[in-house]
């Protein structure tokens, strides 16, 4: 179909449309031409009708619509904010948070483990050794003092030591056996209590029994022997019984102790 024929057909269709005389076939053809944009609504005088339709003012809703809408919006805002609050505790939210917290903790522990101050630990133990050594020196020097009070202080210093050295225990036994003051000797005996598991110290304590002249120390040693069930001390205790200088009350106490030990 050439352009002239096309234009003729188009004009014919438009006229028939305006007159309301289109056949069904012509209607299809017209629609096809509209689809292909060969005929516009304006050409069919329909654009005008459509514009009139558009020009009709839309109706105005009542204020009820506004009230309902803003009430709904307020409710939504409220539920959204409460939802946000609760959402902090929702499982899907909590799981990654706990996971993150656990991972952070583990990383912290691992970093702490690898970066732990190993040299500090060594330094601390070295420092502790130095302090103990100083205490020992102080104790030994105080035992040399003339004042019984100083010597008592020296004996009490050993109670602050976790584990006294052999030098200290030897000094305590020396004090127990030779100190002039009974109280100092009794304090030395008390200070030796923690070390009675050591057999050499036990032997020294047994030997000390015969050397004691103070009834108080004799009785204290006899009670200690009973407490530690040291049967080998019986021989030494009997020496005290045979000694005429031993007071009668002490002899009685020693006899009781020997009875328990045997």
């Amino acid at each position: 179909m050439n352009r002239f024929d096309m234009n003729t057909m188009k004009r014919d269709l438009i006229e028939k449309f305006r007159a309301g005389l289109l056949t069904q076939a012509e209607q299809h053809m017209l629609e096809s031409m509209i689809e292909k944009e060969e005929i516009t609504l304006e050409e069919l005088s329909l654009e005008n009708l459509q514009d009139k339709l558009i020009a009709i003012e839309p109706p105005v809703p009542s204020m009820d619509l506004d009230h309902k809408f803003y009430a709904m919006l307020a409710m939504q805002r409220k539920s959204t904010s409460s939802l946000n609050w609760w959402s902090q505790f929702k499982i899907p939210t909590l799981v990654p948070r706990f996971g993150l917290a656990a991972a952070t903790l583990l990383i912290g522990l691992a970093v702490g483990y690898f970066l732990r101050p190993t040299s500090d630990g060594a330094e601390m133990s070295k420092l502790s050794e130095e302090v103990t050594s100083l205490k020992e020196m102080m104790m030994l020097s105080l035992l040399e003092k003339e004042s019984a009070t100083d010597r008592l202080k020296a004996v009490s210093l050993t109670q602050d030591m976790d584990q006294a050295s052999q030098k200290v225990t030897a000094a305590l036994i020396q004090t127990l056996n030779h100190d002039d003051n009974v109280n100092v000797r009794l304090a030395a005996l008390d200070a030796l209590h923690p070390y009675v598991k050591d057999s050499s110290i036990r032997q020294e304590l047994i030997r000390s029994i015969a050397q004691q002249r103070s009834p108080l120390v004799q009785v204290a040693l006899a009670e200690l022997m009973v407490a530690i069930q040291e049967k080998s001390s019986v021989k030494e205790l009997k020496k005290l019984l045979d000694d005429k200088k031993t007071p009668r009350d002490v002899k009685k106490k020693i006899e009781q102790s020997i009875d328990v030990l045997i």
Binding site: E31, I34, E35, L41, L49, Q50
Partner: peptide, 10 residues
């Protein structure tokens, strides 16, 4: 859509 509008306006 244009065809639908045309039919409706018609």
């Amino acid at each position: 859509v244009k065809v639908k509008v045309f039919r409706a306006l018609q």
